[in-house]
């Protein structure tokens, strides 16, 4: 149900029956290794290309989520997925394997929450009983497509981020036990004219702030309503910017409540510069780490704001700036206070 200008409140409170997070070898050495359902020790996942490896990650995450929920893929009505590879082939090829009716989505690294919000909408409107929302990214496949060859020796600036190799999937249903998706805010595209592809955090921070403000306005809420507000992949630089920008706009956001998936996923010892990024960043941290914290009772209500930079290798070479977007989803534990 529409609330305010750009938010949905899901009256039926769709249930997240299960979620899965899959990662690569670099993520296995990261700070959240214990929160993954499956970790690969081979960057190619036994495939002969990085693109096929990413498809494998996504297939693993989808199968794992369905399996954890004790369902069969034939039971799932719709599959919503997006990724960063040209023409979202990782998602489409996974949909081919799963043979579940499929809607491909694209919101760059915001695919995770875009998918989750749409899945919740489908379930809430009784258009489906079970919907699977997933997304993936692979460091080498993304570097190859957007930047330089993986082994190319260029020095990255302090604002650069590390694309997460992994995939996350969540299975939503009308009934059952689990976390509940209660509201979502769809972001608008914000472009502050930044064009440095090595500073995505800086480009995306205003989009995150815009969506967070819209969310609070539409739902009449404020940071005190949430135990945690996590942005998708702003990294150190972008998250600091978002935090300062919120302060500037008069929103008091306590530091301990405001975090970023890109800051959480790796350890300080790993050479990720400003932090993690990519579709999988918000997906694996939310579907793995944050959900686990909710199951343990450490968090009861969270707001995940997945951020995406909507550039293409072509647009950046043609000196276009980086349009950005952010989608926010509220996830709550079963019991109402």
């Amino acid at each position: 149900m529409l609330q305010g200008h750009q938010s949905w409140v899901f009256q039926s409170r769709p249930v997240i029956l299960a979620s899965a997070a899959v990662g690569g070898p670099f993520e296995a050495k990261g700070a959240l290794a214990d929160d993954f359902d499956l970790l690969h020790d081979d960057l190619r996942m036994g495939q002969d290309s990085y693109e096929k490896a990413e498809k494998k990650l996504l297939e693993d995450a989808c199968n794992k989520a369905i399996e954890k929920a004790g369902k069969k893929k034939e039971d799932v009505q719709f599959f919503l997925s997006g990724d960063l590879i040209n023409q979202i082939i990782s998602s489409s090829f996974t949909a081919r394997t799963l043979a579940i009716p499929y809607l491909g989505i694209f919101g760059a690294c915001s695919c995770s929450m875009e998918g989750l919000a749409l899945a919740a909408l489908l379930v809430d409107s009784q258009s489906a009983e079970l919907v699977l929302a997933a997304t993936s990214s692979h460091n080498s496949a993304v570097e190859k497509q957007f930047r330089y060859p993986t082994e190319y020796g260029s020095q990255k600036p302090p604002t650069a981020q590390w694309t997460v190799t992994g995939a996350g999937a969540a299975l939503l249903g009308q009934e059952g036990n689990g976390l509940r998706v209660t509201a979502a805010t769809i972001g608008r595209v914000v472009d502050m004219g930044l064009s440095d592809p090595f500073n995505m955090g800086g480009a995306m921070a205003p989009a995150a702030v815009d969506t967070i403000q819209a969310h609070f306005r539409d739902l009449g809420s404020d940071p005190s309503h949430y135990d945690l507000i996590a942005t998708g992949d702003l990294g150190q630089v972008g998250h600091q910017l978002a935090s300062d920008l919120l302060k500037k706009h008069g929103i008091e956001m306590p530091d301990e409540k405001f975090t970023d998936c890109g800051k959480l996923i790796y350890t300080r010892k790993q050479p990720v510069i400003a932090g993690g990024s990519g579709c999988a960043c918000s997906a694996v941290v939310t579907y793995g780490h944050l959900f686990n914290r909710m199951y343990r009772g450490e968090l009861n209500k969270i707001l995940v704001v997945a951020t995406g930079a909507l550039l293409s290798p072509l647009s950046f070479q043609q000196k276009e700036s980086i349009p950005s977007i952010a989608h926010a989803v509220v996830i709550e534990k079963e019991e109402r206070e």
């Binding site: 302090p158 604002t159 502050m192 004219g193 930044l194 921070a205 630089v237 910017l241 300062d244 000196k319």
Partner: peptide
């Protein structure tokens, strides 16, 4: 390229520039 930017964009870019690690 700065000339084509709106005042809001210019303001944010200056804001972001100040916080960008050197």
């Amino acid at each position: 390229s700065k000339k084509k930017l709106t005042p809001t964009q210019q303001e944010y870019q200056a804001f972001a520039k100040r916080r960008e690690p050197k």
